[in-house]
Design a protein around this nucleic acid. Structure first.
Lengths: 189, 189
DNA sequence: CAACTGCTTTGCGTTGCACAAACCATTTGC
DNA sequence: GCAAATGGTTTGTGCAACGCAAAGCAGTTG
Protein backbone atom coordinates (compact mmCIF):
# COMPACT_ATOMS: atom_id res chain seq x y z
CA UNK A 1 0.00 0.00 0.00
CA UNK A 2 1.36 3.40 -0.91
CA UNK A 3 2.64 5.31 2.10
CA UNK A 4 0.98 8.65 1.40
CA UNK A 5 1.88 10.40 4.63
CA UNK A 6 5.60 9.98 4.07
CA UNK A 7 5.57 10.73 0.36
CA UNK A 8 4.72 14.39 0.36
CA UNK A 9 7.27 16.87 -0.92
CA UNK A 10 6.82 18.94 2.19
CA UNK A 11 9.30 17.85 4.84
CA UNK A 12 7.63 16.37 7.86
CA UNK A 13 10.36 17.03 10.41
CA UNK A 14 13.38 19.30 10.44
CA UNK A 15 16.65 17.49 9.70
CA UNK A 16 17.96 18.36 13.14
CA UNK A 17 16.22 19.40 16.30
CA UNK A 18 16.65 23.13 17.06
CA UNK A 19 18.31 22.23 20.36
CA UNK A 20 20.99 20.05 18.75
CA UNK A 21 24.34 21.44 19.89
CA UNK A 22 26.65 22.43 17.07
CA UNK A 23 23.75 22.54 14.62
CA UNK A 24 24.49 19.33 12.77
CA UNK A 25 22.77 19.24 9.43
CA UNK A 26 24.03 22.64 8.26
CA UNK A 27 26.45 21.00 5.88
CA UNK A 28 23.83 19.18 3.82
CA UNK A 29 21.50 22.17 3.86
CA UNK A 30 24.22 24.62 2.79
CA UNK A 31 25.29 22.33 -0.02
CA UNK A 32 21.75 21.80 -1.16
CA UNK A 33 20.64 25.43 -1.11
CA UNK A 34 23.90 26.62 -2.63
CA UNK A 35 23.49 24.23 -5.53
CA UNK A 36 19.94 25.36 -6.20
CA UNK A 37 21.01 28.99 -5.99
CA UNK A 38 23.94 28.34 -8.33
CA UNK A 39 21.66 26.83 -10.99
CA UNK A 40 19.52 29.95 -10.98
CA UNK A 41 22.56 32.22 -10.74
CA UNK A 42 24.19 30.66 -13.79
CA UNK A 43 21.21 31.60 -15.94
CA UNK A 44 21.03 35.11 -14.52
CA UNK A 45 24.77 35.77 -14.85
CA UNK A 46 25.39 34.22 -18.27
CA UNK A 47 24.20 37.31 -20.21
CA UNK A 48 26.75 39.36 -18.23
CA UNK A 49 29.58 37.01 -19.11
CA UNK A 50 29.97 35.91 -15.49
CA UNK A 51 30.06 32.55 -13.83
CA UNK A 52 29.23 31.98 -10.15
CA UNK A 53 32.91 31.56 -9.24
CA UNK A 54 33.62 34.97 -10.81
CA UNK A 55 30.88 36.47 -8.69
CA UNK A 56 32.28 34.96 -5.50
CA UNK A 57 35.77 36.23 -6.31
CA UNK A 58 34.56 39.75 -7.11
CA UNK A 59 32.48 39.81 -3.91
CA UNK A 60 35.44 38.75 -1.81
CA UNK A 61 37.59 41.36 -3.54
CA UNK A 62 35.11 44.09 -2.74
CA UNK A 63 35.57 43.32 0.93
CA UNK A 64 39.28 42.63 0.78
CA UNK A 65 40.49 45.04 -1.87
CA UNK A 66 44.22 45.31 -2.50
CA UNK A 67 45.31 42.07 -0.85
CA UNK A 68 47.96 39.70 -2.15
CA UNK A 69 47.22 36.65 -4.22
CA UNK A 70 48.25 34.50 -1.31
CA UNK A 71 45.67 36.02 0.98
CA UNK A 72 43.03 35.78 -1.73
CA UNK A 73 43.75 32.10 -2.28
CA UNK A 74 43.44 31.54 1.45
CA UNK A 75 40.17 33.48 1.69
CA UNK A 76 38.71 31.59 -1.25
CA UNK A 77 40.20 28.29 -0.06
CA UNK A 78 41.55 27.46 -3.51
CA UNK A 79 44.92 26.30 -4.80
CA UNK A 80 47.11 29.19 -5.91
CA UNK A 81 47.44 27.76 -9.41
CA UNK A 82 43.64 27.84 -9.72
CA UNK A 83 43.59 31.38 -8.36
CA UNK A 84 45.94 32.40 -11.16
CA UNK A 85 43.50 31.11 -13.77
CA UNK A 86 40.55 32.74 -12.04
CA UNK A 87 42.31 36.10 -11.81
CA UNK A 88 43.38 35.79 -15.45
CA UNK A 89 39.69 35.59 -16.40
CA UNK A 90 38.80 38.64 -14.31
CA UNK A 91 41.82 40.62 -15.50
CA UNK A 92 41.14 39.84 -19.16
CA UNK A 93 37.65 41.34 -18.74
CA UNK A 94 39.07 44.41 -17.05
CA UNK A 95 37.27 43.75 -13.77
CA UNK A 96 40.43 43.57 -11.68
CA UNK A 97 44.02 44.76 -11.88
CA UNK A 98 47.14 43.14 -10.56
CA UNK A 99 49.43 45.84 -9.21
CA UNK A 100 53.02 45.13 -8.31
CA UNK A 101 53.69 45.63 -4.60
CA UNK A 102 56.37 48.35 -4.44
CA UNK A 103 57.61 46.95 -1.14
CA UNK A 104 58.08 43.45 -2.49
CA UNK A 105 58.07 43.22 -6.25
CA UNK A 106 57.48 39.48 -6.20
CA UNK A 107 53.92 40.17 -5.07
CA UNK A 108 50.82 41.38 -6.85
CA UNK A 109 48.15 43.33 -5.03
CA UNK A 110 44.79 42.57 -6.54
CA UNK A 111 42.37 45.46 -6.84
CA UNK A 112 38.81 45.72 -8.10
CA UNK A 113 38.58 48.20 -10.96
CA UNK A 114 35.72 50.66 -11.43
CA UNK A 115 34.51 48.46 -14.29
CA UNK A 116 34.65 45.51 -11.94
CA UNK A 117 32.65 47.29 -9.26
CA UNK A 118 30.01 48.18 -11.81
CA UNK A 119 29.91 44.65 -13.17
CA UNK A 120 29.47 43.31 -9.64
CA UNK A 121 26.61 45.73 -9.04
CA UNK A 122 25.03 44.64 -12.35
CA UNK A 123 25.40 41.02 -11.37
CA UNK A 124 23.75 41.53 -8.03
CA UNK A 125 20.88 43.40 -9.68
CA UNK A 126 20.52 40.50 -12.10
CA UNK A 127 20.39 38.05 -9.20
CA UNK A 128 17.57 39.69 -7.28
CA UNK A 129 14.90 37.64 -9.01
CA UNK A 130 16.91 34.45 -8.73
CA UNK A 131 17.41 34.98 -5.02
CA UNK A 132 13.75 35.88 -4.51
CA UNK A 133 12.81 32.66 -6.25
CA UNK A 134 15.23 30.35 -4.44
CA UNK A 135 14.49 31.93 -1.06
CA UNK A 136 10.73 32.18 -1.53
CA UNK A 137 10.16 30.18 1.64
CA UNK A 138 11.55 33.08 3.65
CA UNK A 139 9.95 36.47 4.21
CA UNK A 140 11.88 39.70 3.80
CA UNK A 141 13.13 39.87 7.36
CA UNK A 142 14.25 36.27 7.25
CA UNK A 143 16.19 36.86 4.01
CA UNK A 144 17.99 39.76 5.63
CA UNK A 145 18.70 37.57 8.61
CA UNK A 146 20.09 34.77 6.43
CA UNK A 147 22.29 37.26 4.61
CA UNK A 148 23.59 38.73 7.87
CA UNK A 149 24.35 35.29 9.30
CA UNK A 150 26.19 34.24 6.15
CA UNK A 151 28.17 37.47 6.24
CA UNK A 152 29.06 36.89 9.88
CA UNK A 153 30.10 33.34 9.06
CA UNK A 154 32.24 34.56 6.16
CA UNK A 155 33.83 37.22 8.37
CA UNK A 156 34.52 34.59 11.01
CA UNK A 157 36.13 32.43 8.38
CA UNK A 158 38.31 35.33 7.20
CA UNK A 159 39.22 36.19 10.78
CA UNK A 160 39.96 32.55 11.40
CA UNK A 161 42.62 32.79 8.75
CA UNK A 162 44.16 35.66 10.64
CA UNK A 163 44.40 33.50 13.73
CA UNK A 164 44.41 29.84 12.72
CA UNK A 165 45.15 27.21 10.11
CA UNK A 166 44.24 27.10 6.42
CA UNK A 167 40.92 25.68 5.32
CA UNK A 168 42.57 23.08 3.15
CA UNK A 169 44.04 21.42 6.18
CA UNK A 170 41.46 19.51 8.14
CA UNK A 171 40.85 20.83 11.64
CA UNK A 172 43.62 20.20 14.09
CA UNK A 173 46.70 20.73 11.95
CA UNK A 174 48.88 23.27 13.66
CA UNK A 175 50.90 24.67 10.78
CA UNK A 176 51.16 28.42 10.44
CA UNK A 177 48.45 30.03 8.40
CA UNK A 178 49.61 31.83 5.24
CA UNK A 179 46.86 34.37 5.53
CA UNK A 180 47.66 34.92 9.19
CA UNK A 181 51.27 35.52 8.38
CA UNK A 182 50.39 37.92 5.59
CA UNK A 183 47.91 39.76 7.77
CA UNK A 184 50.42 40.10 10.57
CA UNK A 185 52.96 41.49 8.13
CA UNK A 186 50.45 44.03 6.90
CA UNK A 187 49.50 44.91 10.45
CA UNK A 188 53.14 45.61 11.28
CA UNK A 189 53.65 48.02 8.41
CA UNK B 1 52.58 52.91 -1.15
CA UNK B 2 50.94 49.88 0.34
CA UNK B 3 47.28 50.47 1.11
CA UNK B 4 47.18 48.94 4.57
CA UNK B 5 43.66 49.94 5.50
CA UNK B 6 42.13 48.11 2.56
CA UNK B 7 44.34 45.04 2.74
CA UNK B 8 43.14 43.48 5.93
CA UNK B 9 41.48 40.07 5.82
CA UNK B 10 38.64 41.39 7.92
CA UNK B 11 35.90 42.73 5.65
CA UNK B 12 35.41 46.44 6.02
CA UNK B 13 31.81 46.64 4.85
CA UNK B 14 29.03 44.10 4.36
CA UNK B 15 28.54 42.99 0.76
CA UNK B 16 25.03 44.38 0.73
CA UNK B 17 23.29 46.86 2.96
CA UNK B 18 20.80 45.21 5.33
CA UNK B 19 18.01 47.31 3.83
CA UNK B 20 18.67 46.10 0.28
CA UNK B 21 15.39 44.66 -0.99
CA UNK B 22 15.61 41.05 -2.04
CA UNK B 23 18.84 40.60 -0.14
CA UNK B 24 21.17 40.60 -3.13
CA UNK B 25 24.50 39.07 -2.31
CA UNK B 26 23.10 35.85 -0.88
CA UNK B 27 24.16 33.96 -3.98
CA UNK B 28 27.87 34.67 -3.62
CA UNK B 29 27.77 34.13 0.13
CA UNK B 30 25.92 30.82 -0.14
CA UNK B 31 28.33 29.58 -2.77
CA UNK B 32 31.33 30.69 -0.78
CA UNK B 33 30.25 29.25 2.58
CA UNK B 34 28.99 26.03 1.00
CA UNK B 35 32.33 25.46 -0.68
CA UNK B 36 34.25 25.99 2.53
CA UNK B 37 31.85 23.68 4.38
CA UNK B 38 32.19 21.04 1.67
CA UNK B 39 35.98 21.01 1.93
CA UNK B 40 35.73 20.30 5.64
CA UNK B 41 32.86 17.87 5.14
CA UNK B 42 34.80 15.81 2.62
CA UNK B 43 37.51 15.13 5.17
CA UNK B 44 35.03 14.31 7.91
CA UNK B 45 32.88 12.04 5.71
CA UNK B 46 35.63 10.14 3.87
CA UNK B 47 36.23 7.64 6.71
CA UNK B 48 32.52 6.80 6.54
CA UNK B 49 32.64 6.15 2.82
CA UNK B 50 30.37 9.13 2.13
CA UNK B 51 30.71 12.09 -0.18
CA UNK B 52 28.87 15.38 0.34
CA UNK B 53 26.38 14.59 -2.44
CA UNK B 54 25.51 11.30 -0.68
CA UNK B 55 24.88 13.25 2.51
CA UNK B 56 22.58 15.69 0.75
CA UNK B 57 20.62 12.85 -0.88
CA UNK B 58 20.25 10.94 2.39
CA UNK B 59 19.16 14.11 4.20
CA UNK B 60 16.53 14.83 1.56
CA UNK B 61 15.36 11.22 1.75
CA UNK B 62 14.94 11.42 5.52
CA UNK B 63 12.47 14.25 4.98
CA UNK B 64 10.82 12.83 1.88
CA UNK B 65 10.92 9.10 2.49
CA UNK B 66 9.17 6.83 0.02
CA UNK B 67 8.87 9.27 -2.87
CA UNK B 68 9.38 8.44 -6.54
CA UNK B 69 12.64 8.94 -8.37
CA UNK B 70 11.00 11.72 -10.34
CA UNK B 71 10.15 13.69 -7.23
CA UNK B 72 13.64 13.08 -5.81
CA UNK B 73 15.28 14.33 -8.99
CA UNK B 74 13.10 17.43 -8.82
CA UNK B 75 13.88 18.03 -5.14
CA UNK B 76 17.60 17.63 -5.74
CA UNK B 77 17.43 19.56 -9.02
CA UNK B 78 19.46 16.96 -10.87
CA UNK B 79 19.02 15.15 -14.17
CA UNK B 80 17.25 11.82 -13.79
CA UNK B 81 20.19 9.95 -15.36
CA UNK B 82 22.47 11.40 -12.64
CA UNK B 83 19.93 10.49 -9.98
CA UNK B 84 20.11 6.87 -11.16
CA UNK B 85 23.88 6.82 -10.60
CA UNK B 86 23.56 8.52 -7.22
CA UNK B 87 20.88 6.06 -6.06
CA UNK B 88 22.96 3.18 -7.37
CA UNK B 89 25.77 4.27 -5.02
CA UNK B 90 23.42 4.51 -2.04
CA UNK B 91 21.67 1.23 -2.86
CA UNK B 92 24.98 -0.63 -3.28
CA UNK B 93 25.92 0.42 0.26
CA UNK B 94 22.54 -0.69 1.60
CA UNK B 95 21.58 2.80 2.71
CA UNK B 96 18.45 2.96 0.56
CA UNK B 97 16.06 0.54 -1.13
CA UNK B 98 14.14 0.95 -4.33
CA UNK B 99 10.69 -0.56 -3.93
CA UNK B 100 8.39 -1.15 -6.89
CA UNK B 101 5.22 0.92 -6.63
CA UNK B 102 2.39 -1.64 -6.61
CA UNK B 103 0.01 0.94 -8.09
CA UNK B 104 2.27 1.73 -11.03
CA UNK B 105 4.99 -0.84 -11.61
CA UNK B 106 6.98 1.54 -13.77
CA UNK B 107 7.88 3.48 -10.64
CA UNK B 108 10.28 2.91 -7.81
CA UNK B 109 9.64 4.32 -4.38
CA UNK B 110 12.91 5.18 -2.71
CA UNK B 111 13.15 4.49 1.01
CA UNK B 112 15.87 5.05 3.56
CA UNK B 113 16.87 1.79 5.21
CA UNK B 114 17.66 1.43 8.90
CA UNK B 115 21.34 1.14 7.94
CA UNK B 116 20.95 4.33 5.96
CA UNK B 117 19.37 6.18 8.88
CA UNK B 118 22.21 5.07 11.13
CA UNK B 119 24.82 6.08 8.56
CA UNK B 120 23.21 9.50 8.26
CA UNK B 121 23.27 9.92 12.03
CA UNK B 122 26.94 8.87 12.07
CA UNK B 123 27.71 11.36 9.31
CA UNK B 124 26.06 14.21 11.16
CA UNK B 125 27.94 13.33 14.32
CA UNK B 126 31.18 13.34 12.31
CA UNK B 127 30.31 16.77 10.94
CA UNK B 128 29.80 18.53 14.25
CA UNK B 129 33.41 19.62 14.49
CA UNK B 130 33.56 20.66 10.85
CA UNK B 131 30.44 22.76 11.24
CA UNK B 132 31.71 24.30 14.48
CA UNK B 133 34.90 25.23 12.69
CA UNK B 134 33.36 26.66 9.54
CA UNK B 135 30.68 28.55 11.47
CA UNK B 136 32.97 29.77 14.24
CA UNK B 137 31.98 33.36 13.49
CA UNK B 138 28.51 32.60 14.79
CA UNK B 139 27.45 31.91 18.35
CA UNK B 140 25.19 29.00 19.25
CA UNK B 141 21.94 30.88 18.84
CA UNK B 142 23.06 32.21 15.49
CA UNK B 143 23.96 28.73 14.26
CA UNK B 144 20.52 27.51 15.21
CA UNK B 145 19.04 30.48 13.44
CA UNK B 146 21.06 29.80 10.28
CA UNK B 147 19.98 26.17 10.34
CA UNK B 148 16.33 27.10 10.77
CA UNK B 149 16.48 29.63 7.94
CA UNK B 150 18.13 27.11 5.61
CA UNK B 151 15.49 24.53 6.53
CA UNK B 152 12.73 27.02 5.83
CA UNK B 153 14.34 27.90 2.51
CA UNK B 154 14.62 24.21 1.61
CA UNK B 155 11.01 23.63 2.59
CA UNK B 156 9.96 26.61 0.50
CA UNK B 157 11.88 25.17 -2.42
CA UNK B 158 10.21 21.79 -2.00
CA UNK B 159 6.82 23.44 -1.67
CA UNK B 160 7.62 25.52 -4.72
CA UNK B 161 7.88 22.30 -6.65
CA UNK B 162 4.40 21.45 -5.51
CA UNK B 163 3.11 24.69 -6.97
CA UNK B 164 5.47 25.95 -9.65
CA UNK B 165 8.11 25.20 -12.28
CA UNK B 166 11.22 23.05 -12.01
CA UNK B 167 14.47 24.54 -10.82
CA UNK B 168 16.24 23.61 -14.02
CA UNK B 169 14.08 26.00 -15.93
CA UNK B 170 14.99 29.58 -15.28
CA UNK B 171 12.31 31.62 -13.61
CA UNK B 172 9.36 32.46 -15.77
CA UNK B 173 8.94 29.28 -17.80
CA UNK B 174 5.37 28.14 -17.41
CA UNK B 175 5.63 24.43 -18.02
CA UNK B 176 4.01 22.07 -15.56
CA UNK B 177 6.19 20.98 -12.69
CA UNK B 178 6.90 17.25 -12.54
CA UNK B 179 7.09 17.29 -8.78
CA UNK B 180 3.86 19.27 -8.58
CA UNK B 181 2.13 16.70 -10.74
CA UNK B 182 3.48 13.86 -8.68
CA UNK B 183 2.54 15.51 -5.43
CA UNK B 184 -0.98 16.16 -6.67
CA UNK B 185 -1.29 12.51 -7.64
CA UNK B 186 -0.14 11.41 -4.20
CA UNK B 187 -2.52 13.86 -2.57
CA UNK B 188 -5.40 12.40 -4.51
CA UNK B 189 -4.73 8.84 -3.41
C1' DC C 1 75.33 33.98 -3.26
C1' DA C 2 72.59 30.00 -1.82
C1' DA C 3 68.20 29.36 -0.10
C1' DC C 4 63.78 30.81 0.03
C1' DT C 5 59.41 33.11 -1.59
C1' DG C 6 55.54 34.78 -4.79
C1' DC C 7 53.78 33.87 -8.87
C1' DT C 8 53.13 31.54 -13.42
C1' DT C 9 52.73 27.84 -16.71
C1' DT C 10 51.92 23.23 -18.07
C1' DG C 11 50.08 18.88 -17.39
C1' DC C 12 47.33 15.22 -15.39
C1' DG C 13 43.59 13.48 -12.89
C1' DT C 14 39.05 13.45 -10.35
C1' DT C 15 34.41 14.81 -9.29
C1' DG C 16 29.98 16.34 -10.30
C1' DC C 17 27.35 17.33 -13.16
C1' DA C 18 24.30 18.37 -18.11
C1' DC C 19 22.72 16.43 -22.09
C1' DA C 20 21.61 13.14 -25.78
C1' DA C 21 20.29 8.81 -27.62
C1' DA C 22 18.52 4.43 -27.23
C1' DC C 23 16.11 0.94 -24.88
C1' DC C 24 12.74 -1.83 -21.81
C1' DA C 25 8.61 -2.36 -19.00
C1' DT C 26 4.39 -0.45 -17.93
C1' DT C 27 0.40 2.60 -18.19
C1' DT C 28 -2.86 5.42 -20.59
C1' DG C 29 -6.19 6.96 -23.87
C1' DC C 30 -8.54 6.50 -28.08
C1' DG D 1 -6.03 -3.72 -29.25
C1' DC D 2 -2.55 -0.73 -30.00
C1' DA D 3 -0.02 3.62 -30.54
C1' DA D 4 1.61 7.06 -27.61
C1' DA D 5 3.33 8.36 -23.38
C1' DT D 6 5.74 7.53 -19.05
C1' DG D 7 9.29 5.91 -15.42
C1' DG D 8 13.49 4.25 -15.23
C1' DT D 9 18.13 2.57 -16.99
C1' DT D 10 22.35 2.37 -19.67
C1' DT D 11 25.87 4.25 -22.47
C1' DG D 12 28.41 7.95 -24.13
C1' DT D 13 30.24 12.67 -24.59
C1' DG D 14 31.56 16.96 -22.90
C1' DC D 15 32.48 20.62 -19.62
C1' DA D 16 33.42 23.29 -15.31
C1' DA D 17 35.77 23.41 -11.17
C1' DC D 18 38.74 22.01 -8.92
C1' DG D 19 43.48 19.42 -6.53
C1' DC D 20 48.07 18.40 -7.15
C1' DA D 21 52.78 18.05 -9.07
C1' DA D 22 56.70 19.73 -11.48
C1' DA D 23 59.37 23.21 -13.41
C1' DG D 24 60.71 27.81 -14.04
C1' DC D 25 61.43 33.00 -13.43
C1' DA D 26 61.93 37.25 -10.74
C1' DG D 27 62.78 38.99 -6.45
C1' DT D 28 64.00 38.86 -1.40
C1' DT D 29 66.46 37.26 2.56
C1' DG D 30 70.13 35.87 5.64
Amino acid sequence: MLDIASSSLIPKTPAASPETPGGSGSSALLNHMARIMRLQAESALAPLGLRPRHLVALSILRDHDGGTQQTLAALLSIDRTNLVGLLNDLETEGWIERRRDTEDRRRHLVVLTETGSEKLADAEAALVNAEDHVLRGLDEAQRQQLQSLLQLAAAGHAAGHAGGCTEQEPIGHGSACLAAQADEELGAC
